[in-house]
């Protein structure tokens, strides 16, 4: 494992911790899109189908369990916890799941490396992860008041994707036969979706003003 991959995973882990901190400690999910969180739960559920049958390393198994567990508990918190659900901004979080899930499923059935259930589901999870942030970005744009933790959560998620690209570049030059078009293109699209957010995030940081996305 190279430093970019490790840094990417740690950034991903940090994003989840920031979100759990907000939800568990402050008992608030204001500005957080339940739709995006449900899509992530679906992403991990479909990607880690082989978690108990395909062993890679202790590190991988533990991380997979963390991402699965945190994704589903975040969804549970927002839907079921009596305090947390009260802060959920339902009226602005209006993105429809099937606009995202259905095209990804169709694309995975059409474009994959091998037509088996596991590989198609794995490919579906890649396509879905690429666009799962969209409801969250739309919600941010509609929210006049983006609090610090929400801004940091989205920033860490974007940073994680950018570090994964560096990881692929590194692996491409250091490992033989390392070419994964499906992973790379969907990962690149996923990272590009954050470009706009990054721009305003750094602007607000540089000018020391509150983060706000233009409508």
């Amino acid at each position: 494992m190279n430093i970019f991959r490790l840094a990417g995973d740690m950034t991903h882990l940090a994003s989840v911790l920031v979100l759990l901190l907000k939800i568990h400690t402050i008992k608030s999910c204001a500005g957080i899109s339940l739709k995006t969180q449900e899509l992530y739960a679906l992403v991990f559920a479909s990607r880690y189908l082989d978690i108990f049958t395909h062993y890679v390393s202790f590190y991988n198994t533990v991380m997979k369990l963390i991402f699965l567990g945190s994704a589903f508990s975040i969804v549970w918190y927002i839907r079921r916890h009596k305090l947390v659900r009260r802060s959920y901004d339902k009226d602005h979080d209006t993105f429809r799941h099937y606009f995202i899930v259905l095209p990804c499923l169709i694309l995975a059935l059409l474009i994959h490396e091998k037509f088996t259930f596991r590989v198609v589901m794995w490919t579906f999870s890649l396509y879905l992860e690429a666009v799962a942030i969209l409801p969250q970005l739309v919600l941010l744009q509609r929210t006049r008041n983006i609090d610090n933790l929400t801004g940091q959560y989205v920033f860490l998620l974007g940073a994680y994707r950018a570090l994964y690209i560096l990881n692929w570049v590194y692996r491409y030059f250091t490992e033989p036969h390392y070419v994964h078009w499906i992973t790379w293109i969907s990962g690149l699209i996923q990272t590009l979706l954050y470009a706009d957010f990054f721009y305003y995030y750094f602007q607000s940081w540089k000018n020391n003003v509150k983060l706000e996305l233009p409508a």
Partner: peptide, 10 residues
């Protein structure tokens, strides 16, 4: 055989 997917990544 395993497809050439990035199975060692998360």
């Amino acid at each position: 055989a395993e497809p050439s997917v990035v199975k060692d990544e998360l």
